[in-house]
Write a protein that binds this DNA or RNA. Sequence first.
RNA 1: GGUCCCGUAGCUCAGUUGGAUAGAGCGACAGCCUUCUAAGCUGUAGGCCUUUGGUUCGAAUCCAAACGGGAUCACCA
Length: 592
Amino acid sequence: MLSFLKNEVAAAAQTLFGQTIDANAIQLNPTPPEFKGDCTIVVFPFTKFSKLGPEPTATAIGNQLMLQVPTLAEFNVVKGFLNLTLTDHFWLNQFQTKFNQEKVNNISPNNKRVMVEYSSPNTNKPLHLGHVRNNLLGHAIAEILQAAGNHVIKANLINDRGIHICKSMIAWQKFGNGETPSTAHLKGDHLVGKYYVLFDQAYKKEIAQLMSEGKSEDEAKAQAPIILEAQNMLRDWEDGNEAVLSLWKTMNEWVYAGFNETYAKMGVSFDKMYYESQTYLLGKDIIKEGLDAGVFFQKPDNSVWIDLTADGLDQKLVQRSDGTSVYITQDIGTAQKKYDDFNIDQSIYVVGNEQDYHFKVLQLICKKLNKPYAEGIYHMSYGMVELPTGKMKSREGTVVDADDLMKEMIESAKTITESAGKDQGFSEQEKSELYNDIGLGALKFFLLKIDPKKKMLFNPEESIDFHGFTGPFVQYTHARIQSILRKATEENSHATINLSETHSLNNEEKELVMALLQLNNKIKEAADNLSPAIIANYAYQVAKSFNTFYAEHSVLKAENTQKEFRLALATYTAKVLKYTLHLIGIHAPNKM
RNA sequence: GGUCCCGUAGCUCAGUUGGAUAGAGCGACAGCCUUCUAAGCUGUAGGCCUUUGGUUCGAAUCCAAACGGGAUCACCA
């Protein structure tokens, strides 16, 4: 929005010093609050050809700009910094242009097709806090990429096969007494998860028993009857045993019903579901292709490998000696399938950073196979959520359950809202929606305000805040504005910007206008960095600017054009807040 | 041990890709509700940006090393 100044500075340098410079190379920064000015040109690089010290150089350019740029109000020079102040008319004009557009986001679509894969759960246990971060990140990244003009396909790859689901099945057969989600009054994913834990307990007991009979730990682990049963079942599953398949389908259906409930509560959705049971064989054709091409090699026991030592990695197994596929085999196949299905330019995997190595290998393999989609593979590697006690482990019960956490957050929202007496005049239905919006708003903002690449700490002892740099803070600011706008409608006041009447902006108004005008840049920045945190921080900044303005100046008690302008400012702020919250999956209530 | 990530206020985190006196929130302390919603606003205290060297007009930011923390290196997924 201010980048035109770079061209003006380049022109000024041409006029003053006869030097042609690249306008894009000019450093244009926001002026720090302790100095006067809207933006700052760093003139140190100019001293080379100006043959002057930093200050005279800056002054010379400043004087030249005053001649060239009618919207420039004044300038000042501190050392090598040229601080420029634009006229209020300029800012009002910029704001008016935005205000008159129907949508706050006017980024035009590009032709890029991007798939974002996220969630990708196992079907043997319910979702925990780690999955919540994954799902919210994936959903927000998809929204942001779409807002930045991409065509986005949201995908979920469900890991529905393997030894882990067999463990739950065996335990259910042994201990379940035919229990179902409806007889147990338990969500399906929690029921299946319960049997996964029961399996592990029984397994540990058997291991202890065998060890007391003199077996080594490794022997005991390999020979425990219950693990042998599970392995048998996996073989039966792969052989297509009807009874096993039938139970597998039933239990997976329970889990999907549970997941769908959790997804709906979280507010995430998918355009395409992939199931590993349907894709795990796909990679094998590509393995054969790679063997023929000499990209892979076979060991005497028939296992297939790729040698990545020249790339600084290790030798990596891509197919077992018995011909069955491993994790990477399946991913090679799925990568191909995604490309075939949707002709995507980019394939983003939202997966934890513990799998950095895996995705490096995956991309390298696809490159060596000369796959057209190899360059488009991108691992969006996010940091783990850790508890004060360390990493979460499902089997050891040190997890924060997703459903429990959301429920607690909604209950906290209820308590806080009630004690503040802010739910008066709401119907029961509206109350319940409000508590949902606020509780989940707090949770989502808490998880998304942090740079996704960094690991984050969650302390269950300390409740997630509803004050300060939080979701409810931004929601509250939005609701507050809606309240003003309702009153304005009642008194038949209108929001307009009248440029013919010159009136000046005060500091708070100007700061808010400048913040609001940054929206499109922030969306692009967030999309480039795949970082919802940039949006969350921006939403907070806008809300904070508004609240500062709100505390100093009245909207409804202002007069004439100033009142109309402030109403426009409030209207547009509310739009931006609602939209940015939407990008990170948070609903903005009109009253709270 | 190899590879990769991280280290900023008591705590949780920003820091515009190399610019001015390093910023928020929480917690602590002091103020502000006859005036548009106090889930708010204003102020005070709190810092060897882990350390050392290098690059230059200029470094929390780039490079190197050390120290500290984490991840990963399965015929698991």
